[in-house]
């Protein structure tokens, strides 16, 4: 028998369960539990707050439309991330790749100006930029697995569900991504946690 999976979002899953059962008021709790993580993910992926808001709205409404399909005892987080990721990919494929339009505030715009920053801040910004560049150079499968686990905080099992594959496959992809980053960045990133 499979080992019982850890359920860090038990309250959120329970709220979605109530919502699926017909308790309309629980959608607010579902939103409150998911929106910050989904929004952060979408902002990082699109680098546009407006686009991220649009995608968050579409994601939540897709969940609303299909709430009747929510299985009792299922986890809502992987489902929500999978929908958000699909909408993101479809948007990009339709040629809606975000172009930072005028008035569209880019991520990091509120970071301190280099002239005012201490050496540590400058160093951190340079490291972050270097890391972003190296992550972008990873193969698609490795990059997505790494982002979902390391940046979005999903468990291996959740990331596997989002990507429609097995835990073993996701573990391998994330490990390879980590090794590639370590080879490229050396001491800049910390040792991979076991």
């Amino acid at each position: 028998m499979a080992e019982e999976r850890e359920r860090p979002n038990r309250a959120l899953d329970a709220a979605m369960d109530r919502y699926a059962a017909g308790d309309d008021a629980s959608f607010g709790a579902v939103y409150d539990g998911l929106a910050p993580r989904l929004y952060g993910y979408l902002v990082r992926q699109t680098r546009s707050r407006e686009r991220a808001e649009d995608l968050l709205q579409q994601t939540m409404l897709q969940m609303h439309r299909h709430r009747g399909r929510f299985l009792a005892g299922a986890e809502v987080t992987p489902w929500a991330f999978a929908i958000a990721r699909r909408l993101l990919i479809d948007g990009l494929r339709r040629g809606k790749r975000e172009v930072l339009a005028e008035g569209d505030e880019p991520v990091g715009a509120d970071a301190p100006a280099l002239g005012d920053a201490s050496d540590d801040v400058v160093q951190a910004q340079q490291t972050a930029a270097l890391l972003r560049r190296e992550i972008a150079r990873l193969p698609e499968g490795q990059r997505v697995a790494f982002e979902l686990i390391k940046q979005e905080g999903l468990s291996l099992a959740e990331a596997a569900e989002v990507l429609g594959t097995t835990v073993t496959a996701v573990k391998l992809r994330a490990h390879r991504a980590y090794e590639a980053l370590r080879a490229a960045l050396g001491d800049v990133i910390e040792k991979e946690p076991s």
Partner: peptide
């Protein structure tokens, strides 16, 4: 069947 996942069985 979807097991206990909203996303169904793994692709493999």
């Amino acid at each position: 069947g979807r097991g206990r996942s909203m996303l169904g069985r793994p692709r493999p």
